[in-house]
Design a protein around this nucleic acid. Sequence first.
DNA 1: TATGAATGAGCATTCATTCAT
DNA 2: CATGAATGAATGCTCATTCAT
Lengths: 212, 212, 212, 212
Amino acid sequence: MTGPEMAEPEMPHMAPRRRKNQTEETRLKLVAAGAAVFARQGLAGARIADIAKEAGVAMGTLYTHYPDKDALFAEVMRAGQAMVLSGLAASRQVDGGREAVDRAAMDGVVTFAETYGALFRLLLSRGATDNPLQREVVDAIVALRVEELEQGLKDGWARADLDLESAARCEVGAVFHLLDWWLDDPAKMDRDMLIDHLSAFRRFGVEGRAAP
Amino acid sequence: MTGPEMAEPEMPHMAPRRRKNQTEETRLKLVAAGAAVFARQGLAGARIADIAKEAGVAMGTLYTHYPDKDALFAEVMRAGQAMVLSGLAASRQVDGGREAVDRAAMDGVVTFAETYGALFRLLLSRGATDNPLQREVVDAIVALRVEELEQGLKDGWARADLDLESAARCEVGAVFHLLDWWLDDPAKMDRDMLIDHLSAFRRFGVEGRAAP
Amino acid sequence: MTGPEMAEPEMPHMAPRRRKNQTEETRLKLVAAGAAVFARQGLAGARIADIAKEAGVAMGTLYTHYPDKDALFAEVMRAGQAMVLSGLAASRQVDGGREAVDRAAMDGVVTFAETYGALFRLLLSRGATDNPLQREVVDAIVALRVEELEQGLKDGWARADLDLESAARCEVGAVFHLLDWWLDDPAKMDRDMLIDHLSAFRRFGVEGRAAP
Amino acid sequence: MTGPEMAEPEMPHMAPRRRKNQTEETRLKLVAAGAAVFARQGLAGARIADIAKEAGVAMGTLYTHYPDKDALFAEVMRAGQAMVLSGLAASRQVDGGREAVDRAAMDGVVTFAETYGALFRLLLSRGATDNPLQREVVDAIVALRVEELEQGLKDGWARADLDLESAARCEVGAVFHLLDWWLDDPAKMDRDMLIDHLSAFRRFGVEGRAAP
DNA sequence: TATGAATGAGCATTCATTCAT
DNA sequence: CATGAATGAATGCTCATTCAT
């Protein structure tokens, strides 16, 4: 009863590999692998064999968890959207003035892009081959920013002539495009400087302008 | 004007009148169809059969003009890039102050997007699944804008603290993203208002700011 | 009755009461499920997953009882053949004249078809995709009938010009086909009338015919 | 104008292999191969690779003519049904009394079975794995025979107590089953004798019986 | 024994490319 | 040049079987 075999379940850091946990682990591996491969090759270009190999499982395993390629893609998008949105939501809780909050948001976005580069591109790319799921993610982020700008109008820091949706879309496009470029070779610009540029461009685009 | 290449249409015996023009016409149809289908489905997702059907020719015809799918894609991108860049170059020749020139540029971009919606998205999308050819187009446009901003630094209308490449990329991203959204349903915003927003966002992002 | 195989259920220490019965129960469920699914989809078309679900057990369970799909199929056929043949043998024991015995045989066949519709079709179908095991069942039934017809020749009720095997095969085909059709919708004909038709057709096909 | 290359289209026995004819030829090869393989393995058991190899074409060719395996199966059944029914219809035109007509019908069925053994089994098998298309064929044949029996009632050669549909189904079942068995090894019975048995069994089953 | 996730060979289907007409 | 049926390698997906729990 007090043998070592009882100790294991008590160790929280040891991941007592129960049936359910293993299943969940496999799903996670598949989603991670899917994010990587879909980001690299797109939905049409991604090969199931590549995803399975990347996940370290057999091809058939994918189909124990998702009915088809599209379903895995949807799951990847869903999971990515949740991560991005919760990250943005968290940045709002930062202490400090508006500027600090804004910088925290940019910092969070950059961190996300650094951590999940491929997923970041997958989630936020628009244009060719776009997919309803990609629209949804961008729309959600835009909606979040529109809310902030509405507050900016009330608080007086946003330019009164702003069309909120247009402004939010421009911001999102600008931030994504710069990050997309930066991700090609992060050495080309210091991380802090990147955040500075993003914040500056964002601020100048929407904030009120003192009369000359 | 009287060179040998003019002789052919004159030949009465078989009436292959304008063999060359017919060929050119077929190529144009293929490029247009390719732009539409590549824009809709991406390079990997586009089907030769769809392109041929869209062009109104047989599948085999594509191969009498291009060696393979990638070659047609390259041709589509090359043609699109040429159109975009020449359009931007033309807008620089507009008479009037900097503001008029800027507005003309935006007008030209909007016109291009309206005319070649699918091609526009294909050319300017970046992110997931993008292709070296897509990067090249964006890079060329960015380079053009960097030149203008350099002039702006000399002329004093550009903010001195600007990182030119970053600023240009943010601009391009903002403009593309807003247009991409607008193209989904152009009825959602008046064309002139769209150009106003684009111009304003662009100006505020890079122009000098009076001290408060 | 008091042999060692009775001892097991008496063991109190772990209460594996009726281990053997549980096992047998699982096998029965598998055979019943197999009959249903094989009859519906054929050997090639039947899915192990479907059989397991129909039996209410996990897929792996099937493999603790049978080495593979073919073995379960064989078991289904073997069990079905035993049931059919013992039923026919029993009908011979019925009291009464030849007509009563024949009617009892038809009644038994109809009862079997009603009770095990799917299994009935599985056992007696021939033609496309049939399997040596299916031939075997039909052959066994035919052999039984040939014996009866031989007796009929001796007793004088069978037509002398009959080729026994041909006649038996015709009978089996006729009975199976009519029942197969009836099983689609038993409401289309009264059960007794069905037996009347079967018996009449059988009798007229083989019995002696008075000279006109 | 009068060169040998003009002669070819004139030769009706030479099958001037025009584009359309080749296409039709390929379809015929596919249907024939499909009949053989489906008959051997069933719908579920048939492998596209086997059908293609049997037809002498590449696997992809099948899909230029039929959307999928089921469609080819349907075409095979449709073509087979047409052949069987037209054969039966033709046998009705035979000169001579009812007996001659009946014998001609049986002869036609045996010929069909000999010629298209596999297709015959595919078309007429019922029971396990049956398919709506198989039902349809059998139903059509039964309907044809019911018509004849109705005539028999009017003309007085059919027993008045007959249930026409039941009788027709019994006949069809008997004939098919005997032929199915005979096809396993046609050497086991002389062809004429087979037709005799079939005709006799058929006649005794339905014809009026003189009072003893 | 029972379970059901994992496996991977096997199969149906797709689609870029070829080529006889 | 244009055509579109034919090709067959590549790919998505299935499913009988295994095995760790």
